[in-house]
């Protein structure tokens, strides 16, 4: 895990690494918290032409530093936006194909990138009833996904307790066969590594390790047999500029603590 001496927190690592995956000009459907921070960071550093969409109905806002919204549905989300749509219509932009990347977190993820944000334990008798899908299911059904999540064994499980947001279901062509003919998991970003998915089997595989992280550490913190290629690259540590922009956006460290 991240050692104490590093000059950045795990959440800052997640924000920086996932923000770097976005490219200028993309349309990004973002949840609040790390996805919003990462997308805003990308806007400031390398992608001024990134358009953010919020589930609450906002098209193309610029959030105000220190006034980060607590949900995607409140007035803080609308600052300097281009347009406010209804919730249903902004979600329909996903189905119509206007969104390049969906960007969210999750409580639990499995080998095939399925996400659970509904139940811990069995759905009939859960040990924890979680808040549910929100737009997560729609986003993951309809576009390419980046997921930012902390790398812990209890979160990276062989099989999620409940498929809230579909990844590649049971691998191979099962996602396509079920009727989800577009979208799918693109990258999973953690505080240890960046993962993609095998082209054929759709099983999760490590694409890059963060500086100082070993393949062993990733295996030890993953609850399934994760693929690790021989040629994995190493990411560049967060720069001072990236960290200072992040801390400027979230001075009270609501999300980057």
């Amino acid at each position: 895990m991240m050692s104490e001496e590093l000059p950045y927190s795990a959440s800052e690592m997640l924000s920086v690494m996932s923000g770097r995956l976005l490219t200028d000009g993309q349309t990004v459907f973002a949840g609040v918290g790390i996805p919003l921070l990462a997308a805003t960071l990308a806007q400031r550093i390398h992608g001024p032409g990134i358009t953010i969409l919020f589930e609450g109905g906002t098209l193309g806002p610029f959030v105000v530093p220190g006034e980060l919204p607590a949900s995607t549905n409140e007035q803080r989300c609308t600052r300097r936006a281009n347009m406010l749509l209804s919730i249903t219509d902004v979600l329909l932009l996903l189905q119509r194909g206007y969104v390049d990347v969906g960007f969210m977190g999750g409580a639990q993820i499995d080998r095939y990138g399925n996400l659970n944000s509904s139940f811990i334990g069995s759905p009939e008798n859960p040990s924890v009833r979680l808040p549910g899908t929100g737009g997560g299911n729609d986003i993951s059904s309809l576009t390419q996904m980046i997921v930012a999540i902390k790398h812990e064994k209890r979160r990276f499980v062989e099989k999620v307790d409940f498929v809230t947001s579909p990844g590649f279901l049971t691998g191979n062509s099962t996602r396509h066969d079920t009727g989800l003919i577009s979208g799918g998991m693109y990258r999973v970003v953690t505080d240890l590594a960046i993962m993609g998915f095998d082209e054929m089997t759709k099983s999760m595989k490590v694409e890059a390790l963060h500086p100082g992280v070993t393949a062993e550490e990733v295996r030890d913190n993953t609850g399934f047999d994760i693929l690790i290629g021989k040629d994995v690259s190493v990411t560049k540590a967060p720069t001072d500029e990236e960290l200072s922009v992040l801390r400027h956006l979230d001075p009270d460290r609501v999300y980057i603590a």
Binding site: N137, T164, P166, L169, G179, L180
Partner: peptide, 24 residues
């Protein structure tokens, strides 16, 4: 949202490409 929209449109259902394959 589509359920309310179908209700608003006076039709009995709406088709969607989302949610298939999920436990939801």
């Amino acid at each position: 949202g589509l359920r309310y929209r179908a209700g608003a449109m006076g039709i009995p259902f709406m088709p969607t490409r989302a949610m298939m394959g999920s436990d939801v």
